[in-house]
């Protein structure tokens, strides 16, 4: 990134070719993945006689967009400096970036003694993600696709019903604690929890119609209040360096 390239060496040229190739392969495969991922729900919505009105899709999508829309842009921008352009196309299709792909890349770089950001480091990271993808795809197909489907079909229906009824509270409590610990930022945590309590125990009982956009409202309010009440001292020192 900061190395001055006065003469184009063969190493630079071959890395430039690598970048060009991976950008082309990466964007083509990602577009294909995007199409495949949409075909399934499109088939259900339009060709399965489920009597779904377009407005249902729009309202649901708007509610989700209002909650996660800001992350669509922020996440790619955040991960780009760490992943580099080649791995971006891998990472956002394979998923589980921070808990799997980044550690895999770092382990690979250290096992061959390559520094991140160098040419060797970049190639090691891409190969490590290839290795991680191979293991991940295989274990998903085998253990979820084949074994999981069989397992769920063997479990009695009433156990499945109970699991379905209580999966959400069983998941969300842990997810909330996990993200609080991972974020390590006290102020936004307190603000988000206070706003969520306010929404669920004050606003919603008084105005049940808000339910549709309750999560989105808490998200937007959390961002705004966290920004207004931010720790200005800490922020000034970080933006100075």
């Amino acid at each position: 990134m900061s190395t001055p390239t006065i003469t184009l060496t063969s190493a630079d040229a071959s890395m430039a070719r690598f970048e060009k190739q991976t950008t082309r392969y990466g964007s083509l495969t990602m577009t294909a993945g995007l199409i495949f991922s949409l075909l399934g729900p499109i088939y259900l919505v339009f060709f399965s006689d489920l009597q779904i009105a377009p407005s249902m899709i729009w309202v649901a999508f708007l509610a989700v967009a209002a909650t996660f829309g800001v992350l669509w842009i922020v996440e790619p921008v955040t991960y780009f400096p760490i992943l580099g352009s080649a791995a971006m196309y891998q990472a956002f299709m394979i998923g589980n970036i921070s808990n799997k792909l980044l550690p895999a890349a770092i382990v690979a770089q250290s096992s061959i003694g390559a520094k991140p950001g160098t040419k060797r480091g970049d190639l090691a990271a891409v190969m490590a993600i290839c290795g991680a993808a191979t293991v991940h795809l295989t274990s998903l197909l085998l253990f979820v696709g084949v074994l999981g489907t069989w397992l769920v079909s063997q479990v009695p229906a009433e156990v499945i019903d109970v699991a379905r009824l209580y999966i959400l509270p069983s998941l969300m409590g842990a997810v909330l604690v996990q993200s609080i610990v991972a974020m390590k930022s006290l102020r936004p945590t307190i603000i988000a929890i206070a706003l969520a309590l306010l929404m669920n125990f004050v606003v919603l009982p008084a105005m049940p119609a808000v339910a549709m956009f309750a999560t989105a409202l808490v998200v937007i309010a959390s961002i705004l209040v966290s920004w207004v009440l931010r720790d200005r001292k800490a922020l000034v020192t970080t933006s100075e360096d």
Binding site: V70, L71, S179, A192, L195, T215, V218, S222, I223
Partner: peptide
């Protein structure tokens, strides 16, 4: 992203 995720999961 911190505030958005914490807000979403808290809510």
């Amino acid at each position: 992203p911190t505030a958005a995720l914490l807000g979403a999961f808290s809510a």
